[in-house]
Simulated assay, not measured.
Amino acid sequence: MNTQALGVEYYLAGMRAALDDLPPAEVAEIMEDVSAHVAELSTELGENETLEQRLGPPEQYAQELRQAAGYPPRTERLPVTTKKGLLTRPRIAAWGLAAATGVTLLAGAVVLREPAILLLPAVILVLSLALVNDRGAAQAEIMDLPETRRIQQWLTPEAGTPAERAITYLKTLQPAWWLVRAGLLGLGAVLLAGRDILGFLCIAAVAVVSVFAGPRAKVDRRWLWFSLPASALAVGLLFQVVDVTASNLAYNNRSYQQGPVMETYQNIYAYDENGKLLTNVLLYDQDGNPINAPRGYYGCGGGDPEPMIPANRYPRPKIDYENGVCYTVAPSMSAPSSTSSTPSEPPSSSGSAPSSSVAPTSVSPSK
C-alpha cells in the first residue's frame, strides 16, 4: 500500500488491516484512540514529510500499539466462509451522505421558491450520521469501504501528473472556498429574509456553521455530514441566482427592444385632395379585412343590439344623446394642406346641427 500517496485514510486502513486478527471490539477501541492522533499529526507534517517518515509503516506502528496494549503477536485469521452483509451500518451511512448531498444540490436550485424542501436532505443526513456517530472521529470503517477506496484512488493520481498538480492546487483553494460558500449561503438567506423568516434563519445558521465545519472536517470526519451538503447547497443557490439574474436581464432586453406602441383610434376622418371631408368611407386592409376602430357605436337610445352603421365606415357619427340624433361631425382641427389646390376650410363642429358640407349619416331618435 502506497501510504505516502494515499494519506491519512490509507495509513489508518493499513493499521486496521494489521490488527484484524484481534476481536472487532478491541480493534475499534485501538483505532478510536489512535485515529485522532494520526489525523492531528498529519496537519503538523512538513511540506515533503509523510506519516511513514514520522511514525513508520502502518504495520510497524500497529505492532507497537499491539505490544503496548499487551496483545499477543499477530496470527493469521482463518478464512471467512460466510459472506459479509451488503447493507452494513458504515455503508448505509456513506450512501446516505452521498444521497443527501445530491438531494441538497437539487434543493438548492429551488430553495428560494420553496425553503421547506431542505427538510428532506436534513432528515437523510441525521439518520445516516446517527449510524456511525459512535465510530469515532476518523470514521475508519467508512474509509475502508471498497467504494470509498476507489474514490480516494481517483482523487489521488500519480505524483507529477497534470491531474495530481490540478488536485493539489484545488486543495490549496479550500480555505477560500469555505469563505465563498459562506457568502453564497448568506446571500440566499438575505434573499429569503423578506418572504420566509424560518428559511432565512435556517440558511443563515448553515452559513455561520459552515465557516467552522470546513477545517474541522479534515480532523473529524463526522463534520463531512455537514460540510459536503453545505457546499452542495451553496452551489445550488449559485445556479438559482444565475438563472434568475439571466431571466431578468433577458426580460429587460426584450422590454427595451419592443417596437413603438401603436395608437388606437376612435374615429377616422378622410379628406380629398381639395380638403373636403369624405363621408361613408369604408376602410379595408391588404387582406380585405375591415379596419375597425375599437369603440362600437350603437343606436342613439342604447337599446339597439345591432350596430347603427358598419364598423369600418368612417367618419363614425357623434351621438347626441340629449336630442336623440346621430351626427357625423367634422374634427375641430384644420384639414391637411394640398399642393395641387387650396383646400377649403372644413366646417367645424357646431352645437346641434351639422354644416352643409357634412351631411348627417342617419337620424334615429329614440324618443
Rank of each mutant, 00 (worst) to 15 (best):
Y298Q: 11
T88Q: 03
P294R: 12
L22Q: 06
P331D: 08
T82A: 04
L185C: 13
P23F: 01
S227I: 01
D243S: 13
S352H: 15
P347M: 12
V27R: 00
G136F: 09
E59P: 06
K218E: 02
F212G: 11
P307G: 12
Q67C: 02
G188Q: 08
S356V: 08
E114P: 14
E9T: 01
N253Q: 15
Q286D: 11
A116C: 07
Y169S: 06
V325Q: 07
M308E: 07
N2F: 08
D243L: 09
I203R: 12
C326K: 11
M15S: 02
G85T: 05
G259K: 14
S210G: 12
P157A: 04
A163I: 04
P365H: 05
V111N: 04
A230R: 06
H37R: 13
G302V: 09
L228N: 04
N253V: 15
G56L: 05
P346I: 06
N133R: 02
R16Y: 09
S334K: 07
S337Y: 00
S210V: 12
W178N: 15
G324H: 12
A204C: 15
I309S: 09
L249Y: 12
L170A: 08
Y61R: 06
L65E: 01
L131S: 02
R313F: 14
P162N: 06
K318Q: 14
L129G: 02
V211R: 14
R221K: 07
R254L: 14
G160K: 02
E44P: 06
L278T: 06
S210Y: 05
Y256G: 13
P307Q: 08
A166F: 06
E76M: 12
A176H: 15
A207R: 15
D21T: 04
D220A: 04
T50R: 09
N267V: 10
L119I: 03
E29A: 05
G14R: 02
L170P: 07
Y297M: 11
G199D: 14
Q257C: 10
Y256H: 14
G183Y: 15
L129T: 00
V325P: 03
L278H: 07
W154M: 04
D287W: 12
D320P: 10
A232N: 04
M31G: 03
Y298W: 11
L41G: 05
T156L: 09
G136D: 11
A99P: 03
Y321T: 06
D21V: 04
A39T: 01
P215M: 04
V34S: 03
R295E: 12
L119M: 09
D21R: 03
A311M: 08
Q153T: 09
L105K: 07
R74Q: 07
L129E: 01
A140W: 00
P307S: 06
L191Y: 05
R313H: 12
A163H: 05
R135W: 00
T104N: 04
N274W: 01
E64M: 11
V211Q: 15
A138C: 00
E164N: 05
G199L: 10
L191G: 08
A138M: 00
Y271G: 04
A293F: 10
P79M: 03
F239D: 07
W223L: 04
P294F: 13
L155P: 00
T245I: 13
L198H: 13
D287F: 13
V103N: 01
A353G: 08
L129Q: 01
A250K: 14
E47G: 03
Y11L: 04
I124Y: 00
R135L: 02
S231A: 08
A234K: 07
T3D: 01
M143Q: 05
P343K: 00
